[in-house]
Design a protein around this nucleic acid. Structure first.
Length: 505
RNA sequence: GGUGGGUUCGUAUAACGGCUAGUACUCAAGAUUUUCAUUCUUGCAAUAGGAGUUCGAUUCUCCUACCCACUACCA
């Protein structure tokens, strides 16, 4: 049995979005489940769309998620450029592998599976326009290539001349004219396509001496001994070409699996950057500042835990077949299989995403959460001991989804209220209740004693307590009185009550 | 337009021909609680439509509708 080797091969054309992270995750899980390798490769064969900083962004995103490549990164965590024991196939950046691809493109021409094409962009544009005005679709393949400028139609001397003189020619795949391509996909099953509907894709460009995705992808997957190609559904239409390419080279092809797309929460279409901005959730793992200064929020900066993010991503398109929803990375490795990946696109639900984080927050230790909260407390001018913060966290963690919710839930344990919610004042601050509350507060030394005091007199517990809470927190909601008093102390409690009396009556 | 893929509660999904179509999120109601939140209980809510195969179809086949992707010298 061949070793499982999978790869994640993004283009550095923009920040990795959550769909991309999910693709990386599924690849990683399959690799780890089978004791195989997860390889990171950067497909930067389109020099025009390169966006600075995205390669680093991709690497950092994967690292944050705990998706660690077995191959592709050097000791300093950068994309490996020099081959060594760990990275035998370096470089892993396609722009640095130029020399490799040309050889293979020429091999295909020699074997009759590809040819040189000399059509200019304008000529192709015209051909398309003509076909369209005739109500047809232009396809560069067996049906049209005979009338176009290429090494199949031009005399050999002319071809040699153009090859030498011009710098804008390409190598195109010679698509068979009428052949059924039969394919198997691990997720979608058997698929058949007739080659007459396919076109002679450009494989290599003389202009920048670089291959297009299709050639580079197949060559590298072969050279890097990739056993399973797991990628997004948008690649399904080019699967026949890839099958034919493997056949033309005489190479054994990997297994293929095409993942369903991630769709926008409402309406139709795939999830895009805009949706997040519009609906108030991130679509990127980390915050991204574009070269033009535009900032996009990230899951990390929004307060998501990486394991929660990984978990929610895993459940988008896959299910374990049981009712378990919470999985650690190790558990995912155990439970994951492509057989349980769905075929239809998954609409992303931001509400459910929050639920996952809430569950993970609860699982975090009080100490860890306290440590995460300390910086924010400091920014509010609060200097509390770590022990105390930990106790507060224990009290409030089940009310929060993010650590950033903590302050809004428990601020009044650290500072006195300056304002009182009007609605709650009219509801709870009634003279007779205030009188009872004052007496109970003053006559007792602790919350426990106070409760007994109120009970002994058969006073309305709720009314009295709400009155006190209003004085403590400025509103009708919040923690239990006993808990609040434990943190602020009797002195502060009395002070807050008297201040409320002064302000409200 | 062409090619390919898809379609179970609002959302994510379960049920690999056989109970009353299950679960989670959301939402609603009730219980608990000194308020709020939590927690617990209950409820609302789906097989796109039509044929066919079968004793029996969410599941298999075909047609229709709708959705998505691709259709570049982008990936």
């Amino acid at each position: 049995m061949k070793k499982t080797r999978v790869r994640f091969a993004p283009s550095p054309t923009g920040p990795l979005h959550m769909g991309g992270v999910r693709t990386a995750l599924y690849n990683y899980l399959i690799a780890k489940k089978n004791g195989g390798d997860f390889i990171l490769r950067i497909e930067d064969t389109d020099s025009h769309r390169f966006v600075p900083g995205t390669e680093e962004y991709i690497i950092e995103s994967l690292r944050w998620c705990g998706i660690v490549p077995d191959e592709g990164l050097d000791a300093s965590g950068k994309l490996a450029e020099v081959a060594d024991e760990r990275n035998p196939h370096a470089p892993y950046r396609q722009s640095q592998r130029r020399a490799i691809y040309r050889k293979y493109a020429e091999q295909l021409v020699e074997s009759g599976n590809a040819y040189y094409a000399f059509d200019s962009a304008e000529e192709l544009e015209k051909a398309r326009a003509d076909a369209e005005s005739a109500g047809q679709t232009f396809i560069y393949n067996a049906s049209t290539r005979g009338g176009l400028k290429n090494s199949l139609t031009l005399p050999a001397e002319e071809v040699q001349k153009l090859l030498a003189e011009r710098t804008d020619w390409t190598v195109r795949f010679c698509m068979p004219s009428d052949e059924m391509v039969e394919m198997d996909d691990k997720i979608r099953g058997h698929i058949e396509v007739n080659t007459s509907t396919l076109d002679d894709k450009v494989l290599w460009k003389r202009a920048d001496e670089l291959p297009t995705y299709h050639l580079a992808n197949i060559v590298d997957d072969h050279l890097m001994e990739i056993s399973d190609v797991i990628r997004g559904e948008e690649w399904l239409p080019s699967l026949p070409l890839h099958y034919l390419l493997y056949k033309a080279f005489g190479w054994e092809r990997p297994h293929f699996a095409h993942l369903p797309l991630l769709l926008k929460p409402v309406g139709n279409g795939k999830l895009s950057k805009r949706d997040g901005d519009k609906m108030g959730f991130p679509v990127f793992p980390l915050k991204w500042t574009a070269p033009d200064g535009t900032v996009s929020r990230g899951y990390r900066e929004d307060g998501y835990f990486p394991d929660a993010f990984v978990n929610l991503l895993a459940m988008l398109g896959w299910n374990p077949g049981t009712e378990q929803e919470l999985f650690s990375m190790d558990e995912l490795v155990q439970a994951f299989s492509l057989e349980k990946v769905g075929r239809s696109g998954a609409k992303f639900n931001p509400e459910k995403a929050k639920w996952f984080n809430k569950e993970y927050l609860r699982k975090r230790s009080d100490a860890e959460l306290a440590a995460l909260w300390m910086p924010e407390l400091a920014s509010h001018g609060v200097s509390a001991s770590e022990d105390m913060v930990r106790e507060v966290v224990a009290l409030i963690k089940e009310r929060a989804t993010f650590v950033s919710d903590f302050w809004g839930i428990a601020w009044y344990l650290f500072q006195a209220p300056e304002e009182y919610v009007e609605k709650d004042v009219t509801k709870f601050w009634k003279a007779e209740n205030v009188a009872m509350a004052r007496e109970a507060l003053q006559a007792t030394a602790s919350a426990l004693e106070m409760e007994e005091y109120i009970r002994a007199r058969e006073w309305p517990m709720g009314k009295v307590m709400n009155c006190i809470r209003l004085a403590f927190t400025g509103s009708g909601s919040g923690l239990g009185i006993a808990d609040i008093m434990r943190f602020i102390g009797r002195e502060e409690a009395l002070l807050r009550f008297h201040r409320a009396e002064e302000r409200l009556l």
